[in-house]
Simulated assay, not measured.
Amino acid sequence: MPDDAISQATTGVFRRIFRTLGICLVIVASLLCFPHWLPWMIAAWILWHTLAVMKGSPGYWPLFACTLILAIRLVPRTPAMMLLAVAMVAIAVWRFRSRSRPEITLRYRWLSPVMLAILWGLMFVEYRRSATCNHEVGYDPERPIVCIGDSLTQGMIPDPGYPGQLATMVRPTVINLGASGIATGPAIGILERAMVHRPQAVIIELGGHDFLKFHSRASTKANLVKMITLCRTNDCEPILMEIPRGFMIDPYASLERELAYEFDLQLVDDRWLRHIVLMSPAAPPGMWFKDAQLSDDGIHSNPRGSGVIATFVADALVEVYGDQVLRSRK
């Protein structure tokens, strides 16, 4: 075999290897993507499909891959999200079946990118609005804000948790009712007793220990619904903190977003906890920057981390009540 042929064959093999590794890395990155950035992950796969189509390729596999990732991640089953997923599958199937007839795919090559861009835009608007309180909520500086949750709310002694630092950021009194190891069931009783304080908002950080104690997603959702209903019955606004229960596969995935969409709630998206985990001794890049670590054990916030969580919660309160809830305007 001539040297040029050997060189070309070797180059082709390495090209296929690097392409396969690249695809695997993109898939892993998509599975690791924070829920907050989910629309942009989908946009990346649609862009990949668009570039493939513009080069004359059928471009069906990026759509199949994206749809499979969405199914694994258990994304919220909202109308626009489901419409986009169905469209991606339908377009992928059509392009797969038409792969042997390039004249058809070339003639309509702009059809699928334009259609997917429009559907993605609708999904993006819906996804962002689903995590935001879209109704008016009255503000009363005399009524406190109650924080209910497990040890992530209670704090690790001597740190009083994020509620302690939240109290320095907002005007209303902040009451910390966190209890280490608590699941959603027992927390209902705590919330019922908390109504004696006449809170105007309740920050709910629960569900992590339901997962650790093998409670079902359905029972956890039912308990959270009871807490939301109890808050609304007593004229206070529930605010949910999204709990990530795994980096790639989470059987509770989208639970809090689903509830936020159904009940028009303000959501503190899961970045608040992922920041703590990633900037800890247990994970990179935190393990390389000791002075910037937000946790000392890999999950519970230290005072620096509690300040970060409090900032996320304060931002959520501003979304609901406006800047008037803050001690000083930003």
Score class of each variant (00 low, 15 high):
residue 188 I to L: 15
residue 218 A to S: 09
residue 240 L to K: 03
residue 295 S to Q: 01
residue 45 W to T: 00
residue 300 H to I: 01
residue 28 V to F: 15
residue 65 A to K: 04
residue 142 E to G: 06
residue 14 F to G: 01
residue 102 P to N: 11
residue 154 Q to E: 14
residue 81 M to W: 02
residue 242 E to D: 14
residue 161 G to N: 02
residue 205 E to S: 05
residue 37 W to V: 04
residue 5 A to N: 09
residue 324 Q to Y: 00
residue 28 V to P: 05
residue 92 A to C: 09
residue 130 S to Q: 10
residue 227 M to R: 08
residue 141 P to H: 05
residue 99 R to Q: 15
residue 84 L to Y: 05
residue 290 K to M: 01
residue 37 W to R: 03
residue 304 R to V: 14
residue 104 I to D: 10
residue 188 I to Y: 14
residue 308 V to N: 04
residue 271 R to T: 11
residue 149 G to L: 15
residue 79 P to Y: 07
residue 50 T to I: 03
residue 168 T to D: 11
residue 55 K to V: 00
residue 248 M to Q: 06
residue 5 A to H: 13
residue 33 C to V: 10
residue 215 H to Y: 10
residue 324 Q to L: 08
residue 289 F to I: 13
residue 299 I to G: 01
residue 239 I to Q: 00
residue 139 Y to M: 15
residue 185 G to M: 03
residue 35 P to N: 06
residue 296 D to T: 09
residue 134 N to A: 10
residue 318 V to D: 01
residue 106 L to W: 12
residue 182 I to E: 03
residue 79 P to V: 13
residue 178 G to R: 07
residue 320 V to Y: 06
residue 149 G to W: 10
residue 217 R to N: 04
residue 44 A to G: 14
residue 22 G to C: 13
residue 263 F to T: 01
residue 117 A to P: 03
residue 47 L to T: 13
residue 190 I to C: 07
residue 182 I to S: 03
residue 311 T to L: 13
residue 246 G to K: 02
residue 138 G to P: 00
residue 75 V to S: 14
residue 182 I to T: 12
residue 307 G to F: 12
residue 97 R to P: 05
residue 80 A to W: 01
residue 99 R to K: 13
residue 58 P to N: 12
residue 174 V to M: 09
residue 90 A to C: 14
residue 122 L to Y: 08
residue 303 P to L: 01
residue 278 L to P: 09
residue 208 G to F: 08
residue 149 G to Q: 07
residue 308 V to W: 14
residue 239 I to L: 04
residue 205 E to V: 01
residue 259 L to A: 10
residue 285 P to N: 05
residue 18 F to Y: 07
residue 13 V to Q: 00
residue 138 G to D: 06
residue 210 D to L: 02
residue 89 V to K: 11
residue 189 G to I: 06
residue 67 T to M: 09
residue 68 L to R: 01
residue 110 W to M: 12
residue 314 A to H: 09
residue 127 Y to K: 11
residue 181 G to D: 15
residue 228 I to V: 08
residue 15 R to T: 04
residue 35 P to E: 07
residue 183 A to N: 09
residue 142 E to Y: 08
residue 180 S to T: 07
